[in-house]
Design a protein around this nucleic acid. Structure first.
Lengths: 243, 243
DNA sequence: GCCGTAATTAATCGGTCGTATAATTAATTG
DNA sequence: CAATTAATTATACGACCGATTAATTACGGC
């Protein structure tokens, strides 16, 4: 079963448009085609992730989605609203899964929560998306990484989408470390967040640096190490002995 | 002594162009004015950092630097070469300082190097730039953060500019941890790098998340915590007991 | 079978983009 | 002082940008 990266963009090599030429205007005949709206979202997701918000024109999105610029205006009104739709489409899914994972862990640990366990539960849903190899999710997470490190409206967009889960995580870790200051918990999360975002962006930076020894797409190698790294970091930063 | 953020952009509120109207063409009279080339670099640095490479037009740079588009072509040939000039101008300075810091630490520790010490020496020059408040450096580092998380040509640019110092750091830590695998060292650095980049970007993400308890510009709070966090992480990831 | 509505195309508006060239003027050199 | 070089302006080219409108066609409900 091929991934439903519907129309044109996922076809890779060949650049032939999916729907050949529907030249005359009017409502299209009801064939089994995937909704155009979703195709536009998929294409925009990929392009925004690769070239950034300003690096992508709505016309380019339309072109690759085998649509016209007017269709984007029809479904999304503006470029910015298209971006928001792309961003929030999968954020909802991810938040649900992450919340469920934290719930499940908390129930299973039953009062004996560990930092490692909480962090692992928090990270796993995201990293599993990368591991799955679904190009849609990989593009989306690459986009998240890019937005998360952007000064301009990065902070606002990320906050709006992800804060509740993160507050949950920090609270859970706080329970596992009774002595910890709130500041220390937040700062430690800040570092964890940075490490995660860089992982999501999947630059080939570490590949080059390690001369091929590590591959930035090797989630199986990253996940346990990130959990250990972050958990140890949390413990050290939040240890209340005054430096 | 005001910072030499020379021409127009640092003037903040008032939008009056620095050099009022020099309408006719020809070489300008030799006054004590700062070189236009540097002004262009300063403005480009700021704008690229705020809005990203594609989000900035060469015309906007010219406008804010009180120049014409042709001057940018005159000094830098193309937008991309302008970007590279911006990126490499301060990278050279930073690399020199970082290398010196690692040298100094290695000499001072004399065989008894610690992970904390090596990481602190590696981080301090960068964080000191942020702490200094110089807008040029803050803009530059914000730009680095953005590029470092960009899939497209991020990996290549970062590699070209920063790899030697990083190899030095990793080697130094490797000496302090004889048992460590190379892979583990590289992965741990990857996480440290992510945490650092997010810090450099100075989004107000953590400010919002912590409801003002932490401020992303508070380098004095970040520096010791990041050193501790990363050092503990390195130790844990590189501890050779097989998971 | 008619009609309102949903989905599409073509065409267009004013504006901006990156890049290039020729003309012009001041400084420098001999 | 003459000739060369460095730094600047004005102007322009062709392409692309985001957004909008009017026309067109098929579907769904009655």
């Amino acid at each position: 079963m091929p991934h439903p990266q519907a129309r044109a963009v996922a076809s890779g090599a060949s650049r032939a448009p999916a729907r050949p030429v529907r030249s005359r205007p009017g409502r299209p005949p009801k064939n089994g085609d995937v909704a155009l709206r979703e195709s536009i979202l998929d294409v925009a997701e990929e392009l925004f992730a690769r070239r950034g918000y300003e690096g992508v024109s709505t016309r380019a999105v339309a072109r690759e989605a085998a649509a016209t610029p007017a269709m984007i205006h029809y479904y999304f009104n503006s470029k910015r609203e298209l971006f928001d739709a792309v961003f929030e489409r999968r954020a909802a899914v991810l938040n649900r899964e992450r919340m469920a994972a934290l719930d499940a862990y908390q129930a299973e640990a039953a009062g004996e929560t560990t930092i490692e366990g909480a962090i692992a539960a928090f990270l796993h849903p995201v990293l599993a998306k990368l591991l799955s190899g679904e190009p849609g999710w990989r593009n989306y997470l690459e986009l998240v990484a890019q937005v998360g490190n952007k000064h301009e409206w990065g902070g606002e967009v990320m906050t709006r989408s992800f804060d509740p889960v993160i507050e949950r995580l920090i609270h859970l870790i706080g329970v596992a470390m009774p002595g910890a200051t709130e500041q220390d918990l937040f700062w430690a999360y800040h570092f964890l967040s940075g490490a995660l975002l860089l992982t999501l962006s999947e630059t080939d930076r570490i590949d080059r640096l390690s001369r091929g020894l590590c591959r930035s797409t090797d989630i199986a190698a990253i996940e346990p190490r990130l959990v250990q790294f972050a958990a140890a970091g949390f413990r050290r930063v939040c240890a209340q002995r005054p430096s």
